[in-house]
Design a protein around this nucleic acid. Structure first.
Lengths: 133, 133
DNA sequence: GCGTTGCTTGACGTTGACGTCAACGTAAAG
DNA sequence: CTTTACGTTGACGTCAACGTCAAGCAACGC
């Protein structure tokens, strides 16, 4: 049991392909400190951890958050336990984020609701047009 | 009953104040065709309709959609019934939008779930630190 | 050895979404 | 009539988030 099974790693091209982004995007994210892939010689070596962080980043991006803000958020996720003050601060941050996300949730729900209304009206119009032959 | 009650209107400054944006933003949105306020002489006159559209735009913006895409969406909302082909096309568009929004909904829910998990772990750590005096 | 393939680092270009002047019109207030 | 407040149109600036070269190293097949 001594010596763990060699963990699988990925090249930048594989990660880019997998997540549907370009290598330029990945390099830019590393530049901003969103990910910190291992270096083996001059090349980047991606671990599962990097892929997880990237997925978090891309989700944040889909929701329209700026990358700098996303960095602060993903950083929250892999902090060490720390001391009491740190933890209280983190709990405050969590509350802030939850506030914003809850607002976004309402935005999406409202938008979906309006789509439903529009579709209903749309179908009524269609029925009126094709119904009475 | 002949002669409707004069509908209330707004200046650009009032609208900007109300919606929490600058007049520059509003002018830019008009430039992109997101709104088409009435002109009285040289000045813009905003009606309730314009404010409603602006609110739709800002919601789309909060969700991170590009303004050009938002324009196509808000345009869906105030089309005249039209003929069958038009309506079918509109129904297609609605389905597309619903697909994207449903994905966003899942994104937000996943993010909120992870915040909850993080908070729980955080509170456990706090208890371990302050619990056994 | 030599070309191909894949990775690397700059460095400059681009696009979207505005910010920020400058220069001017206009209508009410003093 | 002049000031003040609010409006207007350009035009240029800026910042984020990449795109797009250019030029070079490094390993592998032949």
């Amino acid at each position: 049991m001594a010596g763990m099974a060699r963990e699988r790693t990925w090249t930048i091209a594989e990660v880019a392909e997998d997540l549907g982004v370009t290598h330029r995007t990945i390099r830019y994210y590393e530049h901003l400190g969103l990910i910190t892939p291992e270096r083996r010689g001059t090349s980047r070596v991606f671990h599962a951890r990097d892929r997880i962080r990237l997925r978090l980043v891309l989700r944040g991006r889909r929701l329209g958050f700026p990358l700098e803000e996303i960095r602060r958020i993903v950083d929250m996720y892999d902090q060490q336990p720390g001391e009491t003050g740190q933890l209280r601060y983190l709990l405050d941050q969590i509350d802030d984020r939850r506030g914003v996300l809850t607002e976004r949730l309402r935005d999406v729900q409202a938008a979906l609701q309006e789509l439903d209304d529009l579709e209903r009206r749309c179908r009524e119009d269609l029925a009126r047009l094709s119904g009475p032959r």
